[in-house]
Design a binder for these strands. Structure first.
Length: 423
RNA sequence: GGAGAGGUGGGUGAGUGGUUGAAACCGGCGGUCUCGAAAACCGUUAUACGGUUAACUCCGUAUCGAGGGUUCGAAUCCCUCCCUCUCCGCCA
């Protein structure tokens, strides 16, 4: 959620930045400001009357103490009248506030200056390409065939017990999952992230806190009987740990990581996008989350990208780094780098990580703040990134490291798998 | 799931209708003392919104789990909801 104060000060700049998302928010921003003015006006009037009412009540109290009963009784009339006016003004104030908030929810974050303009993923800017794409022979197969040949993943069994998009990992396939999770967590720990194990179901307030609600209402699994949501990413529980928290300046940067399964309804997906491991309803991911000093949060972002690059290098996978264009940028993000692995057998890039700085968009909602050098409370910046999401990494590992008689496990991963090769 | 108890400031915890934004203690911060430190002593100690200001400067309002109600006046009384704890049951 954008900060009203910021809109007051920089309306033009924000409107301009939002144009990069192909959003014309100018009218909405004006509306927000005028609702805010209406709110203030009602508030001033209301508080004045409350003040009157309070002081009369105090007088009555004093008179009763002095035993001046009649005088006290005589004073009672005024506040009774004021009360009605107060409640009307309060209603007006709350209404304006609510309308303003609802409008604020619909406006995405203002993109950072580095964000290139553009409408979709084709306009994303390639920042870096690294690793060599292996030259595979005619025999090369896509991961869904490899998964079947080597009995690593059973998609049909998953359909039987749950539905499409819920694979069952078998034998070395399951071991590979576990190894990757351990590898990622261990790398994160070495990079200074504290590991957390968090709930996989969260309440509504948490959904709002990180911005999944109300924007992506239909994308989360909702357990209506208990009004809980299955997490679409560990970002939600981990970041919400800091809801309503005032952190200390010297605690920056707060670095947390955690492994969780992620649940996504993926309503509206179809075709080659959902083939094999490309898009699932449940998948595993290690997430890194940082809470940072606003003055240096973009350095944190860069370091996070470096961390993820390190993982891909160690897994010996060809990848590229994209700076997302305005049209492809997530609702809550200011600046996002996507990391994509190359899927050799599918001849396409697969997104496996997304690293973002949200600046104060989440913390405003979360009321996640810190005391600055002057003792003033300010909103902190939040950042997060996948490090990494498993399915497409598995796809890329299988496809890129295959040869005619098996699949090689990258050296860095071997201590975690306990085997060198799948055959 | 059944029965009971309870939710107060950073923490412990007092407060059952009238200067209570809230005692006391602990912690934190500042100071005195000291070569320095500890101890002791003194002072200070929330958040949000609005107005005001050179300035968290001063003022107002709200906030004692959340929302509503009674009252001139509510942490205190009433209603609804949420949460926590204890015991019993079930159970990895």
């Amino acid at each position: 959620m954008l900060e009203v104060k910021n809109i007051e000060l920089n309306k033009e700049t924000i409107a301009e930045a939002l144009k990069k998302r192909n959003v014309n928010a100018s009218d909405d921003l004006d509306k927000i400001l005028s609702l805010n003015e209406a709110r203030k006006k009602a508030q001033i009037a209301m508080e004045e009357k409350q003040s009157d009412s309070n002081s009369i009540a105090k007088q009555i109290g004093d008179l009763f103490k002095q035993g001046k009963r009649e005088e006290a009784e005589a004073l009672k009339e005024r506040p009774a009248l004021l009360k009605e006016e107060i409640s009307e003004l309060k209603e007006a104030m709350q209404k304006a506030e609510e309308e303003m908030r609802e409008l604020l929810y619909t406006i995405p974050n203002a993109p950072h200056e580095l964000v290139p303009p553009g409408v979709n993923e084709e306009d994303n800017e390639v920042v870096l390409e690294e690793g060599t794409i292996p030259a595979l022979g005619e025999w090369a197969k896509p991961h869904w065939e490899l998964a079947k040949d080597y009995n690593l993943i059973d998609f049909e069994l998953g359909v039987k017990i749950s539905g499409a998009g819920f694979p069952v990992y078998v034998g070395k396939g399951a071991q590979l999952q576990r190894a990757l999770i351990n590898f990622f967590l261990s790398e994160a720990r070495e990079a200074g992230y504290t590991e957390l194990q968090v709930p996989h179901l969260v309440n509504e307030a948490s959904g709002y806190g990180t911005g999944q609600l109300p924007d992506k209402e239909g994308q989360m699994y909702h357990v209506t009987s208990d009004d809980l949501y299955l997490i679409p990413t560990a970002e939600v529980p981990i970041t919400n740990l800091y809801r309503d928290v005032i952190v200390k300046l010297e605690d920056f940067p707060i670095k947390r990581c955690g492994y969780t399964p992620c649940f996504r309804r993926e309503a509206g997906s179809y075709g080659k996008d959902v083939r094999g491991l490309n898009r699932l309803h449940q998948f595993d991911k290690v997430e890194i989350v940082e809470i940072a000093d606003p003055r240096s949060s973009y350095e944190n972002l860069d370091r996070m990208v470096e961390h993820v690059k390190g993982l891909l290098n160690k897994l010996e996978l060809p990848y590229r780094v994209l700076r997302l264009c305005g049209g492809d940028l997530g609702f809550t993000s200011c600046l996002t780098y996507d990391l994509e692995v190359y899927s050799t057998a599918q001849s396409r890039w697969l997104e496996c990580s997304s690293v973002s700085n949200f600046e104060t968009f989440q913390s405003n909602r979360l009321k996640l703040r810190f005391k600055d050098d002057n003792g003033k409370t300010q909103l902190a910046h939040t950042l997060n990134g996948s490090a990494l999401a498993l399915p497409r990494i598995v796809a890329a590992l299988l496809e890129n490291h295959q040869n005619e008689n098996g699949i090689n496990i990258p050296v860095a991963l071997r201590p975690f798998t306990g085997f060198d090769k799948i055959q």
